[in-house]
Every structure is written in C-alpha cells, then in structure tokens.
C-alpha cells in the first residue's frame, strides 16, 4: 500500500514532525523523513479523533499513547481501518427528553403543595406588609369611593358573612375602588378591593354578598399569598431547567401553569363561598346570577390559558351545591334595601 504524508505529534512536546504513514493489515507504520520508525499504531488501538471540518483531513489517536496525534490530509485509505464514528446519541437525547418531562411533572405537582406549605410559614406581619403596599398603590392609582353610610353597610355585610370564619379571615381592609370592570380583588394580608363596576352592574345585594363570600374564602385559604409564592416558584423552576430568566417560551409556560393553578383556587373559593352564604342565611342565587351575567364568550381554546373557570360552569356548580344545602325559602336578603342603596351610591352616582 502507498505511503501517505502526515504529521505526527508525540504528545510530550509541542513539536510537530513530518512523517510517512503506511497502512498495513496490523496497523499504521509511521516513519520520519529519515526513514526511521517513529511509532507503530496497532489497528485495534486506533481512535478516530475526528474528521477535521470541511474535508481538511482526519486526526487520529492511539489508545496506547493517548496524548500523541497523527494528522492526515488524505484519509481515504485510513478511514476503513478506523472504528466507526459514534452515532448521533439518539438514546441519550430521548433520555434527556424523558428526564425533562419527569422534572416538569414533579414540578407541576410539587409547586402548589410547596407554596401552600411555605405560605403557612410566612409571618402575618410580612403578609400584611405586602398587601398594604399593593393595596395603597392600587388605591392611589384608581381612587377610592368612601361614604359613611355605604361603608357601614359594607362592614355590616362583611361581619355577617365572616362570622363563621372570623379567626382565619383577618379582614383588615374592605374598600370600593373606581374601576369599571365587573370584578373584585383579594390581596395578601386581608385586603379586599371591590370595583365600582361590580356595584353598578349588580342587581341585588345577594350578588355582592356572593362575591364577597368568594373573596373572603380566598383570604381564609391564603390564596393571594400562596399565588405569590407559587409564581416565584414557577419562575425559579423554569429558570432551573432552562437556565434563562428572560426566555419568552419560559414565561409563557409559567403563565399557563399559573393559570391552571389559579383555576383550582377559584373553584375552591366558589365552594367556600357557598358554605359562607349558607351559614349566613343568604341565598346562593345571587352568586349564581353574578356568574351568569359574566359574559366571557364561548368556551374554547383559550379556556386552559385563562385564570378563571368557565362562568356558566361556575354558576351551575354554585346552584347545585347551594340547592343541596338550603331551601330558598329559608334565606333572607343580604342587606336591607336602604343599606343596599347606600352601597350602590357610594361612588356618588
């Protein structure tokens, strides 16, 4: 077989020498320009160290002398002698893929439980501090509605609803803010903001009572704090896996996960609201009517991304649960007409 020109490095110094390489049946016979043997690399010991990019040749190693290198520009005669290059690691790839799914599943199940456990450990003074900071900011931005008669009626309704869960409720702020949306907000540390839009659209005091019962249940279960910790946990987990805090896909996934957890919270708060309303002797019809009026369009693809379950399903669930507990005849309205009127007019319209 023909002798091929090559370059040899002995792996002890960085010197490079010109050699001729003769491939034989047992291995490569490597000789210097003077014809003296430099090394003999057995075929079994040969390692393909890598094709140099874009056809620049091939570099060989030898198991018996791991630091030495042999580079050949013309590798056609050598390639058949070499062990097959490692195949693309599909198995490893499938492994990482499965591992990634496993990590994701563990996080999916572990994050809500962990957040609940952590929320219990948060000092209530901290919780109140965050809630107050947030609520002060929102009140400043949106503006509040305050009138003595309306406030008194609100407190009255809150006391009637909260009687059953007073030790766990810690309600320390119940304020109407100027927002046109039909909504209300529970914040960590016992703050509830009722939007003026909700008061304007509500047709009876029972609807307001239903919404307050829902928000109070959020507070009793410490949902706002749990949600904050959960969001931090999701962010941390996504960062753990992707190593990137600013990834678009990562934050999208985090939002979808947060939405799914929050839908569970909403269902729990609906169920708790039914209990509160029943204990207070207020009908659940108001809450059901409120959900029926919430028009959030046809349920569809966006369902699993939204933070709240489908309103019609919620109304139905409330009616079913409420109907089992109490006959409508046994209830009385949440507020007297003049108290309701005071709350309705709290923003001065």
């Amino acid at each position: 077989m023909t002798a091929l020109p090559g370059r040899f490095n002995d792996g002890r110094t960085a010197a490079s020498r010109q050699v001729t390489v003769t491939p034989g049946t047992n291995g490569l016979d490597i000789r210097g320009e003077d014809g003296l043997m430099v090394a003999f690399w057995k075929t079994a010991d040969l390692r393909a160290d890598g094709e140099l990019p874009d056809g620049a040749g091939v570099r060989l190693r030898c198991a018996a002398d791991p630091d030495a290198r042999l580079s050949l520009a013309q590798a056609e005669f050598i390639r058949p002698l070499l062990p097959k290059p490692p195949r693309f690691p599909w198995l490893k790839l499938a492994g990482t893929f499965a591992g990634a799914l496993g990590v994701l599943a563990a996080l999916w199940l572990g994050i809500p439980a962990g957040a609940r456990a952590l929320a219990i450990m948060v000092p209530s003074a901290w919780e109140k501090g965050w809630g107050d900071t947030l609520a002060d900011e929102l009140e400043r931005r949106w503006g509040t509605c305050r009138q003595p008669a309306g406030d008194a009626a609100l407190q009255l309704l809150a006391a009637r609803l909260g009687a059953g869960i007073a030790p766990d409720l810690h309600l320390n702020r119940l304020v109407v803010v100027r927002r046109t949306e039909n909504n209300a907000l529970a914040l960590p540390g016992g703050s509830v903001l009722v939007f003026s839009g909700l008061l304007a659209q509500a047709e009876s005091s029972d609807e307001l009572a239903g919404v307050l019962a829902h928000e109070f249940t959020h507070l009793r279960l410490r949902h706002p704090t749990v949600a904050m910790i959960r969001a931090a946990g999701i962010g941390m987990a996504v960062m753990l896996v992707t190593g990137d805090a600013s990834g678009l896909a990562a934050s999208g996934a985090a939002m979808a996960m947060a939405g799914a957890y929050s839908r569970d919270d909403e269902s729990a708060a609906d169920a708790g609201a039914v209990t509160l309303l029943t204990q207070a002797g207020i009908g659940t019809q108001g809450l059901a009517a409120f959900f029926r009026r919430l028009d959030d369009g046809p349920p569809g693809l966006t369902g699993w991304l939204s933070t709240h379950p489908d309103s019609r399903a919620r109304a139905q669930a409330v009616e079913t649960q409420g109907g089992e507990r109490q006959a409508p005849a046994a209830t009385r309205p949440a507020l007297e007409p003049e108290q309701w009127a005071a709350i309705k007019g709290i923003c001065g319209q």
Binding site: S16, D49, G50, L52, P53, A56, R59, R69, S71
Partner: peptide, 16 residues
C-alpha cells in the same frame, strides 16, 4: 465548540 476549535489551524495543525 468542537467545530470552532477543530476548524482553527495554527502552524499547520488543528486545535482540538
């Protein structure tokens, strides 16, 4: 990196 390094030649020999 493997591609970047192995494409770099110095005094006739490629990095690794």
């Amino acid at each position: 990196r493997r591609l970047l390094w192995s494409g770099t030649a110095a005094w006739g020999d490629h990095a690794e």
